[in-house]
Design a protein around this nucleic acid. Structure first.
Lengths: 193, 193
DNA sequence: GCATTTTCTTGCCATTTGGCAAGCCGCGCC
DNA sequence: GGCGCGGCTTGCCAAATGGCAAGAAAATGC
């Protein structure tokens, strides 16, 4: 695995030169996670800021009744980490697990902060990652409130069809805010009366 | 209006001395918004990073059917701005409106960036604001998926009872992800059969 | 102070979604 | 090849929520 996708990603998020990107990438170390293994477990402090090079992951939490609820899916080309735990150095409420074998590039909180300190252009990158995630979450929230379950499923299908290939239906359902039963019916098609 | 609450807020969010806080506060200018007036309108680029000193505000968007949906409430002591528009310099999808007469301290994007550049300690503050908002949104999202409407209403009632004093029920209902009719029934109490 | 407009409640009924349980299918394992 | 198990579907019915409309109550404007 080369650092090509990683440096490309840095450059795609803002005004960073190829040389700078390679310099920054030096601090990232390779990380492999086997299917079903965890990048983060609840109770631990997240210390991986991971660029996912290949594979799929999901984040989930348990609600008060013990049901697991998917809070996010991650495809390659994204940064995977639990924001609050990582930046506030507090125990995570969530788990992050590999849906398939995964490979990526990781950096610790301390090292990332050192980079932010040393490289002003990279700070911009860090902020963009946060802002992008925040905005995506807002838009998911709005959809959850304004769109019916079937429309939310269609959107996901268009945005990331690959997810459906790798995550069991139950997992996708809780991400959409419905039960696996309902999702199964939605997939069947328009409720023929 | 003095800058006391503003400097207190800086200090409460991280390791910033009183002297530093006052220095930073110099760049913030007072802003008054009359009840029903807008801090931000859809289509405009947000250029106010506002510390709300007194009053209540709400953010909302229109869904595809033209219904307005409350995306957030803000009480005094919070930073009010639209993350994506402000940092990406893109037109806002949302409106931010005063529910009551409001007073606060505002800074432009350019000035804020200058502060982040000049003051490392303040960068930490900026990140905390983002992370806090992000985490709050995640937790709202989880509640929306896992908790029934009545429980979400109860939580809001405990967390910010003042909001109910200033926002019409319809506004609160869309924030909770339900209709005003349902919220009215929920408030009536346990559905006595 | 009165008229107008908004906000809130409520009844009636439709729609959406959930809960449960049975059955089916596919796949790995011995 | 047969067994077991997780994952998906489906029927039946219950619960939660919505849509509409009428009327009461409260706020607003002049």
């Amino acid at each position: 695995m080369t650092k090509e996708k990683l440096t490309q990603f840095f450059q795609s998020m803002g005004p960073i030169s190829a040389a700078q990107a390679e310099d920054i990438a030096i601090a990232f170390v390779p990380k492999t996670i086997a299917k079903h293994d965890f990048l983060l477990r609840a109770g631990k402090v997240s210390d991986d800021y991971l660029f996912l090079d290949s594979g799929f992951m999901r984040a989930f939490a348990y609600d008060t009744d013990g049901n697991d609820v998917t809070t996010g899916f991650y495809a390659s080309g994204q940064i995977v980490f639990e924001v609050a735990s990582f930046f506030n150095r507090t125990p995570s409420q969530e788990y992050i697990q590999a849906l398939t074998d995964c490979q990526g590039w990781s950096i610790t909180h301390q090292q990332l902060n050192a980079l932010f300190h040393a490289r002003p252009e990279f700070r911009e990158f860090g902020r963009s990652v946060l802002v992008r995630g925040y905005a995506a979450l807002k838009s998911r929230m709005l959809a959850l409130i304004t769109e019916p379950a079937a429309a939310r499923y269609e959107s996901l299908l268009h945005a990331s069809p690959e997810i459906l290939q790798h995550a069991p239906l139950k997992t996708v359902a809780s991400y959409l805010g419905i039960t696996d039963t309902s999702l199964s019916r939605i997939r069947k098609g328009p409720t023929a009366k």
